[in-house]
């Protein structure tokens, strides 16, 4: 591998590598384990074990760690031409685009239910007969505080076959139901996340101007803000389950609320880990120069992306 950079080959094509095979083992073990455990819980006697999934995830995480370490080492050894670096930039851009489309599916579901399916269930427009025959008495409102099932008096009064039991929350997360503005966690989370987009930008500027301590400081602040955001979200989820009666079972409001905020929270966690790793690289190994810091730059793009998604969430899940 040593003579790679000095050959006539302009674009670095790595030698054969076992990492793809190991990552495959990790990925397949974890997905197979997850599917088995879920099936045991739902269709079996209720006992389930996620051990296989965790083993797979450990293999996967270890492989990714070694994979990224290899690419970082290759870059430090000067193997990456400007052209290869551009491939990484393009790759990261389209990866983020695919993430945007993943969220689009859930936002699309939210919009569809709120503007079309919900009002139709309540008898609006084309849905008059459905309401009369199936869900007599169901009134549409958002956040949906009474599911069609509850409107007809529970599972036993349903005309249609049962598809689960859904009990709605007695209190929603919407701004309208807050007692005092300063008690409203989503607002604080918005402030935190928007601020963190600014701090990561300041860190970037510090790096560009060659000021490492400024970079470390503001990147550290960004990571801390990410952790605070996640902690507040844990508090919010606890409140929802413990005091609001808002759960995954709370009809379509609970479904969209938890899936949108949950996947967003998962992405914030990923982004925080990514930025934390960049911080460690800078602190411990002195990585990154003002003109070569793609690992940090990609992580910061990802961070701005989760920030933008949050703005959408704040608008359509909490306020409107």
């Amino acid at each position: 591998m040593s003579d790679q950079a000095t050959t006539h080959e302009k674009y670095y094509v790595p030698e054969k590598s076992a990492m793809a095979a190991l990552a495959t083992i990790g990925l397949i073990t974890s997905t197979f384990g997850a599917a088995t455990a879920m099936n045991q819980a739902t269709f079996g006697n209720g006992e389930s074990s996620f051990t296989t999934m965790y083993i797979g995830l450990c293999i996967f995480a270890a492989t990714l760690f070694s994979w990224f370490r290899t690419t970082i080492k290759e870059n430090l050894a000067g193997m990456n031409s400007a052209q290869l670096k551009k491939s990484y930039v393009i790759g990261m851009f389209w990866f983020i685009f695919s993430e945007v489309m993943f969220f689009a599916a859930f936002f699309g579901a939210l919009f569809y239910v709120r503007t079309l399916a919900g009002p139709w269930l309540a008898g609006e427009g084309e849905g008059g007969a459905w309401n009369h025959l199936l869900w007599e008495g169901f009134q549409y409102s958002w956040p949906m505080m009474q599911t069609p099932q509850e409107a007809v008096g529970g599972v036993s009064n349903q005309v249609m076959a049962n598809m689960g039991t859904f009990t709605s929350a007695h209190k929603s997360m919407a701004f309208a139901e807050v007692d005092a503005w300063y008690q409203w966690l989503p607002m604080w989370n918005t402030i935190i996340l928007l601020t963190s987009s600014g701090t990561v930008h300041i860190a970037h500027e510090g790096l560009l101007s060659g000021n490492r301590s400024r970079f470390n400081l503001w990147l550290g602040i960004t990571v801390a803000l990410g952790v605070i955001f996640l902690s507040l979200q844990v508090v919010e989820y606890y409140e929802a389950y413990a005091h609001f009666g808002l759960t995954l079972n709370s009809g379509i409001y609970g479904s969209t609320f938890f899936m949108l905020t949950g996947f967003h929270g998962f992405h914030v966690a990923m982004g925080t880990i990514m930025l934390a790793i960049q911080l460690i690289r800078s602190l411990k190994a002195g990585h990154f120069t003002s003109d070569d810091h793609f690992g940090f730059e990609a992580s910061s793009w990802y961070w701005h992306f989760v920030d933008v998604v949050w703005v959408g969430l704040f608008l359509f899940v909490y306020i409107l």
Binding site: M38, M101, M163, L248, I252
Partner: peptide, 27 residues
């Protein structure tokens, strides 16, 4: 990714009690 979203909603409906595709819960 949209297909991934669709099967994820299925997974949640089957195993975790959500109601994306169930009118009884407002989906």
């Amino acid at each position: 990714p949209v297909l991934a979203g669709a099967v994820t909603m299925m997974l949640m409906d089957i195993h975790f009690g959500t109601s994306f595709f169930s009118a009884a819960g407002g989906g």
